[in-house]
Each structure stands twice: as structure tokens, then as C-alpha cells.
Design a protein around this nucleic acid. Sequence first.
DNA 1: CATGAATGAGTGTTCATTCAT
DNA 2: CATGAATGAACACTCATTCAT
Lengths: 217, 217, 217, 217
Amino acid sequence: MSKKKNSRERIVAGARELFAEKGYQATSISEIATTAGLSEGAIYRYFNSKEDLLLACVKPALDDSLDLIKQKDLAVSDLRSFTRLLLEKRLALFHKHYLSYKILFTEAYFNKDLFKMMCETVLSDDRLKAGTEMILGFEEIKRLRNYFTIMLSQVFALWSIHHLRNITGELREYLPEGMSRVSDQDLLDDMTDFILYGITENPPAGSEKDENNGGEA
Amino acid sequence: MSKKKNSRERIVAGARELFAEKGYQATSISEIATTAGLSEGAIYRYFNSKEDLLLACVKPALDDSLDLIKQKDLAVSDLRSFTRLLLEKRLALFHKHYLSYKILFTEAYFNKDLFKMMCETVLSDDRLKAGTEMILGFEEIKRLRNYFTIMLSQVFALWSIHHLRNITGELREYLPEGMSRVSDQDLLDDMTDFILYGITENPPAGSEKDENNGGEA
Amino acid sequence: MSKKKNSRERIVAGARELFAEKGYQATSISEIATTAGLSEGAIYRYFNSKEDLLLACVKPALDDSLDLIKQKDLAVSDLRSFTRLLLEKRLALFHKHYLSYKILFTEAYFNKDLFKMMCETVLSDDRLKAGTEMILGFEEIKRLRNYFTIMLSQVFALWSIHHLRNITGELREYLPEGMSRVSDQDLLDDMTDFILYGITENPPAGSEKDENNGGEA
Amino acid sequence: MSKKKNSRERIVAGARELFAEKGYQATSISEIATTAGLSEGAIYRYFNSKEDLLLACVKPALDDSLDLIKQKDLAVSDLRSFTRLLLEKRLALFHKHYLSYKILFTEAYFNKDLFKMMCETVLSDDRLKAGTEMILGFEEIKRLRNYFTIMLSQVFALWSIHHLRNITGELREYLPEGMSRVSDQDLLDDMTDFILYGITENPPAGSEKDENNGGEA
DNA sequence: CATGAATGAGTGTTCATTCAT
DNA sequence: CATGAATGAACACTCATTCAT
């Protein structure tokens, strides 16, 4: 059983890496098998199809993602902490499941099942309801009209920053001197301030980041 | 000659649509030929390879994109107008070259040549220098540390919003009641305010068209 | 030991059903194993190969078939009884070993070993000699020239009728109203008369149960 | 065009031979391609799938078969001529399309589309209606109850004889001295007499075969 | 006596590309 | 300019068989 589990996990891990690296279509079962140290046929003992394997690669990330907003520790009282915590959790997910999210964001549009899985996780009724309720508790938010859309877009913004930091190497020859390597803590603080106060306003005294020394994933 | 040009353009237009719809790998030359009303062999009279065709599909969008920041009309004096104009130009590009950007954002990571083309356009020395100079002229910006990164991320945020609005149909079954269909003008105003003042601060009197305290979708 | 025999028989029974239903090539060892409630590997404890299993499926039918003409009760004095008895025995075999004959008639031509097994059983010297001797005893037979061929062909005719009766369900949509469901007894009587007197001559008085002038299906 | 047609026909002819020789499942596209002097991929320019090719192999035989009973020359006045002509036509089809019928009789049961094609041809309403009408005109037929079934079964009987004559070589080692090599004319005469009068009755004077010297396929 | 993980050769099928016409 | 037949390598997937346990 341990051997079997080992094989399955080796397959998934290798496939995830390859799918993220070269794309789903450009990755062959044969490559995945070689990476896992198995024969092609062996893959099909664990997965019915290449697509099944794709879904399996991404599932843990979506499961983890689903738990994000349910967690009790999101129930913080002030908007700044709430916003930062949300970003922090999201960034932690991007760290932990970087490859999976890379796969998701590039393949989901072309794969109906993946798209469905992603939507059902990200846009589940429960999540939306819980998120909306939390937000409605904050009076400081002045412009709610597109709050949902804006928050969603900031997730992609955060992803794009995280992703760019990860491919700095590939960008080096195109970027003048390499993008600023900002620490996670600084990035989170900056984004929190940005979301709350934009680029022109100073954060209110006493709300500044110095108080945020909490651990990070 | 006009016939030839005609054929070439029919090929590119059809290929762009197919690449955007189904992805590069999932689109066959045969399909493209059929769409263009030509034979498979005819494609190779205009393009040396499928990849060449891919690059050709995306080139006009990148060329247009390159002109964006060079234009004189970006030389506005106040930060709000500058920011809004930048967003507006960007959104206009997304409108005009929606299919091309869809292709870029999904294929560029997996195609070295496409990636290079995109980087050389988006991250060209000229662009960065010009952009940086403009920004340095505005004293209102309080937190410049990651200004570049943040602005770049907002481009992806804007793209994500635009894209989500375009696939509303596919999302309908996953979203509670359909995402708010905000007009381009409102979207640009909201994003400008968001970037400048965040979600908590009111814009300075007189800088906004409207007071948006309405409910949320 | 009883367990083992049990397993072996379960395998053979399941395989026979699957081979008859889907064909030899289209049936996988894995299916057979599942049907028998065993693992794939277990099959190879009882059979050296899939082909071995195929032969085992069909063997009992051939063994039974071999006994047919040897039996003493075939030694009847009149031709009608002899002919009918032969048909009756044959039909009984088709009933008892329907699946096996289905396999035989569809696979034997493509499988040398199966073909050999079948020929050695059906066309054995003993059988032919015994059959010929019996026939030579009947003076009523006017045209012996191809008696052997004709009798052999009637076996296939009988099989085709029996088989058609078994797949009535699948034929229903193609047949006007469903083929006449004739009882075994009537079928045997009809065929006997047909073989002896054809379709135009009435059987001699007293040699038939009934006068069949009824309509046709 | 002539080249193309040539290829298609070479593929079909080769496939038909291989399917008949080794069975559908046991024949690979690669073999068919080699036989036709083409690459594997080329097959798919002419047929969408292996199954399509199978149907194409068999179609001409079924088309010809469909025409059999429609032909005017079947409108003969006496039962003997009618019966013999039917057998003769059938045997001619078996000669002309021997390989196709071999395929049909071994694969049709396992291939729904083939089965359907065969049934729709053999059991078409028109055929049955036309056949029934013709038969009803003959008063000599004493036992009509299973006339349809019996005639159908005689087709299989005729097939089995024809087939056995074709595989005499393979049977030689199992048969005492080789089966009687009866000419087509004699076979048809014998079978006609058999169907009309069975094995015991002499045909009425003057109806004998000497009058049948007609050409044969 | 039985398992089931693993193999490896094979399957039907697709497709970018070439080239004679 | 354009065709479309042909290639050949690749693909996802299957399966009879083996073997360590």
C-alpha cells in the first residue's frame, strides 16, 4: 500500500511539475511516466485518463482554497487586519500550490471540467455568502459598488506579482536590472495599504505595518 | 495581390479566433484552413509554420500596445487624469485585441518566442523609462516603493475584470445572479479612484463624478 | 480443492459468457477476472494463456458433441426416426452449449487451435464412418450423391434457426412483426419433414403428427 | 482523382482480404496500410475510423444483395425454376462477394453498425414483401408454416457448403479424402431438388435438371 | 492460493509538414 | 496561387502477461 501510494504521489507530483512547466497538451504521458520512474501503462492503474490526472494535480490546491474563508481566524474586527489576513492567506496558498495555480490559470479556460472544478470551489455559494457577510460589517468601505469584482481582481493582481517574482530568471534579460525583490511581508503590507488607501493617501496613524510581525507561510 | 492579402488576413483572423477559443495546441492547421476557406497546403504559402502563424496572430496587438505610452496625449498634468487615461488606453486595447490578449496570457508562458515578443514589447527599455519619468513628476504618490509592480498588477486586474465580463455566459451557472454589468466608463472611474484612494478614502471633492455608496452585486 | 475447482469453473463460466457476448478479442482478462470475482493474476493459476482459456470454454461442448453419434439410441430402424433423432440431439446440444457454439462458429475460423479442436471432433474418422454406415442402411434415400454435404449443411441451417430464435430481441426492430416462435417439437417435426420430403411433397400418411397447412409468419 | 480512387480501392480491397483472413479485431491499420502500399496516416484520409473501413468493405456486397430479389428475371412461373434461380443468384453473390460475406457472418454479431446494415439490407420490408408475394403464388407448397424461416436457413446452408468448399485446403488434414468437389451446377440442382422434394422423393418426371444449362457467375 | 502493481509492445488515431500537380 | 494526397512521428490508451509479496 505504501508502495502504491508512493507511485500515485510520484505521478501526480511529476505531472504537476510538467503541466505547469510545459502546459497540459504539450506534456505527454510518456514523459510523466519517465519522471515518475514508471512505464506508461502504469499511469493508467491510478488514473483513467490524462484529464483525470490533470484534475488530480489541481485538486489539493482547490481543497485548500476552499478552506480559506471558512477558517475562524478570519473573524477579525478591523478592516485592515481582515484585508491583510485575506491577502496573506491567499499568498500562502499561492506559495504552497504555486504549480497548481499556474496550471489552473492557464488550462481552466480550455478544459470544461477544470473550469467547473475551479468555479465550484472559488465561486461556491458558501464562500460568497460568507465573504459578503464579513464585508458588510465594515463601515469604512466607502465604495462598495464593485467591491466583489475589485477584490476578485486583486487576487489576480496578487497572483501576477507572485508569478512575476517566480519567473524573475526568465525575465532578467528583458528587465533593466531585475524587479525589486520584495519580501512577502512587505508585499502584503504594501498591498493592504494600496487596497485600503490607494497610492496617494497615507494610512491613518497607528494602523501601520509595524504592528504586523506575525508568522507567514 | 489583393486576393493574396485577403487570404493571409482570412487565415490570421480565423486562426486568432480558433487559438483564443480552443487554445493553440488544440487547434489544427486543417481547421484553420477550413475556416479560411483554403486548403491545408495553402497556409504554408503565407506562414512557415504553425508557430509563425501564432506570432502573426498576436503581432498587431503588441504593436498597438507598444504605441500606448508613447502617445503625446498621455502627457496630462494631474495624476488622476494620467491614471485614468492609462487605464482607458489599456481597456481600449483589451477591447480591440481581446482575442490576441487571451492568446497571449494563456500561451506566452509556454512558447518561448511568444514570451520573448511579449516581453520585448511590454518591458522595453523605452517604455519603462518613459513611464518612470512620467510618474516621477507626480508628488501625490506617497508610496513609490512598489509602484511599478503595483501598476503592472493592476493591468492584470483590469484584464481579469474585462475577461470575466466577457465570459459571463459561461459563469452564469456558478455565480449567484450574474456579475454586475458595469459600463466601461464606470469601471474606469471606479478603478481610478480605487488606485488613487483605495476602498476607504473618499476622493477629494470635485474629482469624482458621483457618490457611489450603493449596494453591491 | 473444492475451492480451486470452484474458481476454475467460475472463470470458465464467466469467460464463456463474455466471449460469446462480446467476442474473444474484445474480452479482456481483467473483465473475466472481475466476473469471476478474482484478480487478473489468479487466472494464470488455472490457465497458461487467454487462448488456453478459450479452448477450455469450448471443450465441454465438443466432448458432448463427440458422444452424439456414438450413442446406441441412434440405432433406430426407420429413416424418419433416425433423421429426427439426429436433429433432436443436435438441437439439444445447441440448447445446452449455446454459448460455446456461438464462440465456435465465430472464432474457430480465426483460431487455428480452436479450428483444429473442432475439426477433430466433428470430422473425426469414427464419426464419419459410423454416420456413413447408418445411412447406407436406408434404402429410401434416393439421392445420396451429396448426402453428407447436405446433412452437414442442415446442421448449420438448424443452428441458424436456433440462433435467430435466441436473438429475436435484437432483430425485432428489423423484422415486420417478430419471427414465428415455433416450439422445439414443431421445429424438429417440420425440419424432419422438410429434409425427407422437401416443401412440396406430403409425408406418407401416418408418419406425421399433424397436417400443417396454416398461414406463414 | 484516378490516383485517389486507386488508393481508396486498394485500401478497401486489402482490408477486406485481411478482415476475412484474420478477423476484424486481429487486423491492424498498420497491416492494412502496408498491404495498400501506404502509410497508416493515409488510411484516415479515406476513412474516419477502422469501423468505417469495415463497413465500406462490406457495403458493395450488401448493395448487390439488395438488388437480388428486385430483379425482374425472378418472375418465373414455376416453383422449381424460382427456387433454383434464387439459389443460383445467392450462390453467385457468395462467389462474387465471398470475402465480404465471410466478414459479415463472423463480425456482424459483434458490431452493432454492421449488424444494422446487414439487417436493413437482408430483412428490409421491400424484400420481405416481394418475396412473400412471389411465394404465395405457388400452390405446390404444402407446408408454409415456416417457409420463411426454412428458406432463410437454407441460405445459411448454402453458405456453409460454399464456405466449406473454399476452405477444403485447411480441412484436408481432417477429412478422410477431401470432400466431394461438386460443380456449382450440380450443387444447385441437388439443393433445388432437396428443397422441393427432400431426400426421399423423386422429382416429378420432366422437371429434372437437364433443362438447366443456363450460364452461371 | 491469490493479489495487484508493473511492464512493454501494441492499438487506433491525429497532425504539422511536404510536394507533385 | 492553390490543392490535397501522403508521410511519419507522435499521441493517449489497452492489455496479456509476469512476479514479488
